[in-house]
């Protein structure tokens, strides 16, 4: 490998999530392992965020394309379900990006899921918010509305 080239792990980690393209696979914490065998074939092990995630096939193709472009044409992607992904797998960078996108992020690992009374509005910062539905578009999201600025927003819930 020449200096300045990306390692297979870096290539895989920088692939974007098709649903929230501001997040990378490394941010999401879905990359379980990236190994290279004696003949240079790359094996990538990923875990889905949830069983029915429609993005898994797109991610698989995107990872293979990214590896191909980075000079690793021999590659395979496999999904492992155990241990199951939780929102604790999100990186600190991932949490920051979510916040910038207007999605209130979950608390980090090791901290108890809060008994949420109100969340900080990612638009205006007000705490005068209310949950409009606990069950959002994916298991990890709930729907909220800010009473101060009137904007609806999503919260990336603690999912463990």
């Amino acid at each position: 490998m020449r200096a300045g080239e990306l390692t297979p792990e870096e290539v895989v980690g920088s692939v974007r999530d098709p649903e929230l393209p501001a997040l990378t696979l490394a941010d999401l914490g879905v990359v379980r392992s990236v190994t290279v065998d004696a003949v240079g074939a790359v094996e990538v092990v990923l875990t889905p965020t949830y069983s029915g995630c429609p993005a898994t096939e797109v991610i698989q193709v995107d990872v293979l394309n990214a590896l191909m472009q980075a000079g690793y044409p021999q590659a395979s992607v496999r999904f492992e379900l155990f241990p199951a992904w939780t929102s604790d797998s999100l990186s600190a960078q991932g949490r920051r990006v979510l916040s910038e996108l207007g999605i209130a992020p979950p608390v980090g690992p090791g901290r108890p899921a809060p008994l949420t009374i109100s969340l900080k509005c990612p638009q205006c910062g007000s705490l005068r918010t209310r949950e409009t539905s606990h069950f959002g578009s994916t298991a990890c999201k709930s729907l909220w509305t800010c009473r101060a600025c009137g904007e609806p927003f999503e919260h990336f819930k603690e999912l463990r």
Partner: peptide, 20 residues
Amino acid sequence: FEEDVALSNLALDLLGQARG
């Protein structure tokens, strides 16, 4: 609307399990 989203998402979980 919220239930539209919620029930569709539950359906998607089950579909994912069915696929596996």
